[in-house]
Design a protein around this nucleic acid. Structure first.
Lengths: 226, 226
DNA sequence: CGAAATCTTTACCCTTTCTTTACAGTTTTC
DNA sequence: GAAAACTGTAAAGAAAGGGTAAAGATTTCG
């Protein structure tokens, strides 16, 4: 999901934008002044910024300087060519004059986002479970779950083979580099801890035992009658 | 020198564009129909295409499909939102309605060209942290921080992969040219020193340990642990 | 050379993680 | 139906990892 920061002091315009963007599936952050914008940007890096020029606090131009890589679409009532040219040369990715058609804005947002270097999101998902192999973060819904190295390795292996039964010997094999001394009896302990953490984070029971074999991930409320 | 292809059937408009662009220092190629455009593009790959929509032969849309990566600014007399949206979503990088100010076109051309070869940002930022690879300066907010060679290398590596867990072995690998004898135990010492310097300069705690793996940079005030 | 800065090593404490042991509940097998 | 084999969870001790300080080793630089 892409994050878009709306930097706009006019409440009603901002509300409208937020509503439209969220309906399109974007995650929206807002700031109402230049200084607030800088604070917002310092805390997190959105994929795109919608920037109003006439801001209290810092001017839009000053905010623009601080973006360092995040594309910005300037949305302004200033229709003059000089303003457009200046902002575009100063780093704006695009410039739209108010009033504008919301459809055009959405299209131009897509243009900006599609050229972002989307580095093949290394994400594994199943149900409300998400595992990011880059940040090594695991979430249940929106809830982050802290896993140990071994638990992470187990869950990742299961997520790579959803709905398939994974033999205990295979699991031990694959996590051997992380946890060389793990035996079958400690494995069941890890699985138990893992299940508890997922449960505590609000997840359904997703790791199921396969009798005599190992474990598997169940996606839906499916039952595997023996 | 950048090459721009002008695909425009109107001779006088094309001449005007060519003259202006050449005065700006671009190398200009021309095509007067859709089919000619495809031939031109098959022979050489310009850095940017200026594309008129109403072409004899193939339509602008059809040309657009064949561009495969070359950014295109559509220049058209069609001012309707539907046309704009359609073209932008089909791959156009920008859309200008005739008549337009030549200055704005030049600015938008620069916008397209400047982002072409991902210009190896000399600046890395995260939160209130800034690292300038040209001057080798690191600041927390406005406060300059003096780092040793090793500390600088570590921080730069983390800033290049924000929010990603970076394995200790990877860090050791990447800083090996600067600090060949660094081991895991000395690495944690460097990280400790680095954290202390950033802390003393007023920074938040941004370098987080990933248990058993290495370290990562946290942008938000997000918590991964516990 | 000598001083300062930098890097590595050692040591210690604390936290996290892993394995083991124990025991209760289930399923299978005979 | 009972023994055997397997699973699930808890608790505790063992092992490993991380954080920091201090001291020794090395390099840098005037």
């Amino acid at each position: 999901m892409k994050t878009i920061a709306i930097i706009e002091d006019d409440q009603s315009i901002g509300d409208l934008l937020e509503e439209v963007l969220e309906r399109e599936g974007y995650l929206v952050k807002r700031a109402y002044s230049g200084t607030e914008a800088l604070y917002l940007l310092s805390r997190q890096r959105p994929d795109l910024v919608l920037l109003d020029l006439m801001l209290p606090g810092l001017s839009g131009e000053q905010v623009l300087e601080k973006l360092s890589g995040v594309p910005a679409i300037v949305v302004s009532a200033k229709a003059g060519v000089d303003d457009k040219v200046r902002l575009l040369l100063e780093g704006a990715a695009d410039y739209l004059t108010k009033p504008f058609e919301i459809q055009e804005l959405l299209a131009r947002i897509q243009v900006q986002l599609r050229k972002a270097p989307s580095p093949a999101a290394p994400l594994f998902q199943a149900g409300d479970l998400t595992l990011n192999t880059l940040s090594r973060e695991v979430t249940v819904g929106k809830e982050p779950v802290h896993l140990t190295k071994t638990e992470y390795a187990i869950l990742k292996l299961l997520l790579q083979n959803p709905t398939q039964a994974v033999a205990k010997s295979v699991i031990l094999d694959r996590i051997a580099q992380d946890t060389p001394d793990c035996t079958e009896s400690s494995l069941k302990q890890h699985v138990s801890n893992l299940r508890k953490k997922l449960r505590d984070a609000g997840g359904r029971e997703t790791i199921q035992a396969v009798w005599g074999i190992g474990f598997k991930l169940v996606l839906d409320g499916e039952e595997t009658s023996l």
